[in-house]
Amino acid sequence: MGILEVTNVNKRFGGLQALSNVNLDIPAGTVHAIIGPNGAGKSTLLNCLVGKLIPDTGTVMFDGQSVLGRKPYEINQMGISRVFQTPEIFGDLSVMENMLIPCFAKRDGVFRMHSIESIANEHEIVERAEHMLEEVNMADKKDMIASSMSRGDKRRLEMAMCLVQEPKLLLLDEPTAGMARADTNNTIGLLKEIHEKRDITMVIIEHDMHVVFSLAKRITVLAQGSPLVEDLPENIKGHPKVKEAYLGEAA
């Protein structure tokens, strides 16, 4: 039994079948990649996992519990963090504050009213945030306003915000899109390191095959809402169905 089990999930948008009969069983501690052409339904699938969308049919079980019908913040508290396709960060806040918020959420839960305490006195939390920023090489940017950074830095910040929560499952929607080659390699290194050190299960959506093949233990190919194949990376590379799916899109 995997940490994440998706069974028979269907989702329609009007006349468009965005997901049809998707099944996934992801064992704990692995890195699973989902690839597929644009519009295949990859982001939609993630949305169904984090409570942004509710599938029309099917079940999504995480860690033995259903996530369906729960609010996004409840699902996050269960241990699922998500990096978005377009970075979602607190743009008006400093990088350090961006890091502090998930640290507080991790310690204090959905809501806690500490309105008089000073942040500076929360040594443990400040230290954690600083440590994570060092890990992603952003310690020098800690006083910058988040929205003033480059797209790649925003992504890295968002990833750090998710990682500092030490989720059981990390969902990454194209984590390296818009990054320079060097940054992409850094990110791959970081994710590898995190995965080895913390034993986090990861689901990665990615167009960059270099990233996919450096990280993934298994790959699912999605096309027009339904999973074509699920296999080891080396078997996916030359798979005829996969080529067809990508070429079919190009034609």
């Binding site: 609010k71 913040y73 998500r82 979602e88 806040l93 504050e97 918020i101």
Partner: peptide, 19 residues
């Protein structure tokens, strides 16, 4: 700080486990 975070991005707030 949470209040300022709400002003900036409620989506991220939700996906950070905060209501």
């Amino acid at each position: 700080m949470m209040l300022r975070a709400i002003k900036t991005n409620q989506t991220r707030m939700n996906y950070t486990g905060l209501n």
